[in-house]
Amino acid sequence: MDGKALTSSLLYLDGVKVSFDGYQALRGLSLALTPGEMRAIIGPNGAGKTTMMDVITGKTRPDEGDVYFAGSIDLTALDEAAIAELGIGRKFQKPTVFESHTVEDNVLLALKAPRAAAATLFGRDEAGIHRRIDAILATVGLSDLRAHLAGGLSHGQKQWLEIGMLLAQDPKLLLVDEPVAGMTDAETAQTAQLLRSIAKDHSIVVVEHDMAFVRDLGVKVTVLHEGAVIAEGPIDQVSADPKVIEVYLGR
């Protein structure tokens, strides 16, 4: 990475190192995402994909390295809430929704609105809020289940709900960790389509193991292995890379 990227990238990671009890999960990871870009990240289990998202969202502090958002905001100095407020949304690998809230309330909580305690305690619901919730629920196909408790949803439905929550947040940058795990092929295709349409006015980083899905997205791919980037480029190029074949795709 060179200095130019620092100013123009939406997300910029350089030489990020993270270790847990001596185990190096990230060993000098560098990555730059241009505004409006959608990027797919692949890599074997334990490559550090989720850890990278943890670093970006403030869950894990890197031992070394720089993480910048929108050119100049140092994410390593901020906590999760501040980073989310900046406009970085995240879908977790293991779907986490608020189980004892209804589907609708889950979306309501995610909806872009003032987050301060005073605002939620005394604030009135904005006009048009119902329409926005309706629209999101329709997009993720959960309109019929709106009054159900999220804890009762199936795994796939929870995945959709999380995507819905991500939409509701309307972030500048979406980090999506394995969105199609546990989905049928049809649903997978649907998700790919949804992501592509979101990508029109958002930047997205998608982590996925499903190669068909990644191919379907048709975007630049970054391959992670043992906490560092080993290849980057169009899907056809990286899937022909012998190193990638050896560590990830298999013969």
């Binding site: 809430a81 004892s100 301060a116 305690a117 939620t120 305690l121």
Partner: peptide, 26 residues
Amino acid sequence: SKFGKVLVAIRDAESRTRFLGYRVEN
């Protein structure tokens, strides 16, 4: 209130609530 809903969200999944941008400690 919505505040109460955030409380329940914190009870169920505290760190998820943080990632939505809520200052859980407040």
